[in-house]
Design a binder for these strands. Structure first.
Length: 209
DNA sequence: ATAATGATTCGCT
DNA sequence: GCGAATCATTATG
């Protein structure tokens, strides 16, 4: 079911550059997000993602090709991290996808803890293995130690944050879709099935199934 | 220079 | 279910 007995491959920038956000968002379910900051290595199995497909996508910060200092990274080539602060509290982590000037990104919303759980618990100030350790885009980033320092950085071992995919992919039938969370303002784009999640995993946020 | 806001989370009711 | 927390980013004057 879950790809633990599988070999893994580090996803290179070219992987993200060759695909749009919808393809990547679906593909990343079952891949591993890994961070290694100051020697504290944590791994999570990605269970929930959302695709943001600007310029058409009204829910994206880069909607209508809106270029600001913050959104600029999405207009570059795929393979970089787009991290921003939400509600002044939460760091939300995205992977930029697509080619130059195609501002696509995939928001990682939840992972299942795999390794470095002790670091995650300290960062989250928790002492039990509960869903709220890593399920939800803000708490996921907190558990994995992701902050603005990773913004605009290529995903790579050198930069301490990268993604590995298993040789055995999760079957498409195990990946559910729904509308995206928290984008009700986006009109017809709010109801598009751009959220992806692992059907069997309890480590997902939200109620939409 | 100032004001509004948000791809959220948590604690309380 | 509801409201507060909290600040980088953005738009506006």
């Amino acid at each position: 079911m879950l790809p633990f007995d599988s070999n893994r491959t580090v996803l290179k920038p070219s992987f993200f550059q060759a695909r749009d956000a919808l393809e990547v968002a679906q593909y990343l379910i079952g891949s591993f997000l890994i961070t290694n900051f100051e020697g504290e290595r944590t791994e999570g199995l990605i269970t929930e993602t959302e695709a943001y497909c600007a310029p058409q996508d009204k829910a994206s910060h880069a909607w209508n090709n809106r270029r600001t200092n913050r959104t600029e990274v999405m207009f570059g080539e795929g393979g970089k991290a787009y991290v921003y602060l939400c509600y002044g509290i939460h760091h939300l982590f995205n992977v930029v996808c697509g080619k130059q000037d195609q501002p696509h990104a995939v928001l990682i919303r939840a992972v299942m803890p795999v390794a470095g759980v002790e670091y995650m618990m300290v960062r989250r100030k928790m002492n039990a293995l509960e869903k709220r350790l890593t399920s939800g885009p803000g708490v996921m980033s907190q558990a994995m130690g992701i902050t603005l320092r990773s913004n605009n950085k290529l995903l790579s071992c050198e930069n301490g944050i990268w993604i590995e995919s298993p040789d055995k992919a999760v079957p498409t039938s195990d990946v559910g879709t729904s509308r995206r969370i928290g984008v009700d303002y986006a009109g017809e784009w709010a109801i598009k099935p751009y959220r992806f999640y692992h059907r069997q995993s309890p480590w997902v946020s939200g109620k939409l199934k």
